[in-house]
Amino acid sequence: MSNNWEVFAIKYADRNARTRADSFLFDDNHDAPHAMDYFIWVLRRGEEVLLVDTGYDDEEADRRSRPIRLNPVEALMPLGIDPQSVSTIIVTHLHYDHAGGIRHFPNAALHLQAAEMAYATGPCMCHGVLKAPFTAEHVCEAIHRLYSGRVIFHDGDGEVAEGVTVHRIGGHSRGLQAVRVRTDAGLLCLASDAAHYYENVLDLKPFPIVVDLEDMMNGFQTLRRLASSKDLIIPGHDPLVRELFPAQGPEHIIRLDQGPTRTLV
């Protein structure tokens, strides 16, 4: 059996009523439409399954008036993943669309950057503009896992499993981490929100929701170093992922570990 991992992107929501001003700072074409997809990711090697982020559920969708197409738990069903059996979740950061479903995986331990927990529970949350992407209930769920001994903290780079490492990027959120995975195609980097879109990382264009712009800009270079090639950097929200990589069964499940069917121009 290969020691490499299978990697799947699971699309559970999208937002089409957006413009480029919502995606890029200092963009000349700011009023042009610019859609966004929402993903979680699955790493699988034989019987081993790691979940990267949890998305958000119907309750959060109603709270924020941002509908989802599939509850992430339902979206995982074609891969045979029972939420009760998930034992490990890599939480890239605690924003609602990445940590909003932790409660649906009651037996999972969380891999999280210490800087992210400190940020989401610290004085920065006194500022409404910084607090907006977080939901208190999601952060409290992570704290409950901490007090039950089920949070593994990382401070910078760390190993989650053989062939799977995490790397603190920051920028978009204080403790945002990317995930590097060894695959048949090479070292693949799940950027999460270190690059919402290919354009962020390849053209060095910052995303507007940012706590530290220097960290964000430096993070684009880090993503290039972590992946074997730019084609193996997987942005966190880019609909282009579904065009470059093949579907695996249902159209909302995208296979990443064999590489793209065509290269980026």
Score class of each variant (00 low, 15 high):
146 L>E: 08
235 P>I: 13
264 L>F: 06
37 D>K: 08
146 L>A: 07
62 D>S: 14
204 L>C: 08
26 F>R: 11
218 N>S: 05
113 Q>C: 14
191 A>R: 04
19 T>F: 03
125 M>T: 07
45 R>D: 00
5 W>D: 03
8 F>E: 05
56 Y>W: 15
253 I>W: 01
111 H>A: 10
208 P>S: 09
11 K>N: 09
65 S>V: 08
43 L>N: 04
194 A>V: 07
165 T>L: 01
223 L>N: 07
148 S>V: 03
164 V>Y: 01
83 P>E: 00
145 R>K: 13
252 H>A: 02
118 A>K: 14
30 H>K: 15
192 S>D: 13
111 H>I: 12
131 K>R: 15
264 L>R: 07
165 T>G: 04
92 T>Q: 14
121 T>R: 11
241 V>K: 13
52 V>Y: 05
37 D>R: 11
257 D>F: 00
223 L>T: 09
117 M>C: 02
149 G>W: 02
35 A>M: 03
79 L>H: 00
153 F>A: 11
58 D>H: 11
109 A>Y: 03
107 N>P: 05
238 D>A: 10
68 I>N: 11
42 V>C: 01
219 G>K: 07
3 N>L: 11
37 D>W: 06
102 I>K: 06
197 Y>G: 00
3 N>P: 01
194 A>K: 04
196 H>L: 07
69 R>G: 09
246 P>L: 06
255 R>N: 02
97 D>R: 08
134 F>W: 08
166 V>P: 04
206 P>N: 07
133 P>R: 12
99 A>L: 05
51 L>R: 04
237 H>C: 15
226 L>M: 09
44 R>K: 03
167 H>R: 04
65 S>A: 15
80 G>R: 00
15 R>Q: 14
146 L>R: 14
2 S>D: 12
141 E>V: 11
62 D>F: 03
84 Q>D: 12
202 L>Y: 08
1 M>C: 01
101 G>S: 13
102 I>Q: 05
35 A>E: 11
125 M>C: 11
254 I>V: 15
54 T>N: 10
249 G>K: 08
263 T>K: 13
213 L>A: 11
251 E>W: 02
61 A>N: 11
58 D>V: 11
231 D>H: 09
65 S>N: 15
15 R>G: 03
260 P>C: 02
165 T>F: 04
148 S>Y: 03
96 Y>C: 09
152 I>D: 11
16 N>G: 14
42 V>M: 01
51 L>C: 02
147 Y>L: 15
8 F>G: 02
84 Q>I: 02
85 S>Y: 00
118 A>G: 10
